[in-house]
């Protein structure tokens, strides 16, 4: 139960951070990616702020034997740079540029009740269903 309340609280903080930072404004995301046009560098400070904090806290937190509300760590174990990783990231980047939305800001923006993020989010779920169907055949994730 405690881990669920924690997840809810983390989600709340995370979405407030996205909103304060400007990540929920597609035009800013577009401006950030538009380095050959009218570049708006402001969103680079979102990554700088987030990484500066987490780079330090990650090391401190992992000195603990266990997390507070779980009896194990659930960290990614894959180490190799693979073709699906690169192709998937490339496809994601193209969609990100086309819409100005990545998954977190899109989820947060659902609350704005604007039709555009709703349409994006629903299509994103369709893309995930599509992945699952294709993956059943090709087993990318193995």
């Amino acid at each position: 139960m405690k881990n669920k309340i924690a997840a809810l609280f983390v989600g709340l903080l995370f979405s407030l951070g996205l909103g304060i930072s400007g990540m929920t404004q597609p035009e800013k995301v577009f401006g950030f990616l538009d380095i050959f046009g009218n570049w708006n560098a402001s969103l680079i400070f979102v990554m700088i702020g987030a990484i500066a904090i987490h780079l330090v806290t990650y090391r401190i937190i992992l000195k603990r034997k266990l997390p507070v509300f779980s009896n194990q760590w659930h960290l990614p174990t894959k180490r190799k740079v693979t073709v699906p990783l690169v192709i998937g990231s490339f496809i994601f980047g193209v969609g990100w540029a086309l819409s100005g939305y990545c998954p977190g800001p899109a989820l947060t923006s659902l609350a704005s009740l604007n039709g555009r993020p709703v349409l994006f989010f629903a299509s994103m779920i369709v893309g995930m269903i599509g992945f699952k169907m294709v993956d059943r055949k090709f087993n990318f994730t193995r």
């Binding site: 500066a52 987490h54 507070v68």
Partner: peptide, 23 residues
């Protein structure tokens, strides 16, 4: 504002790791 928002995101990610042990 991007820096502050980013710091909040970093804090949220840190709490997720500290409390639930997750990325």
């Amino acid at each position: 504002m991007p820096l502050l928002g980013g710091a909040l995101i970093g804090l949220a990610a840190s709490l997720m790791l500290f409390l639930n042990g997750r990325v």
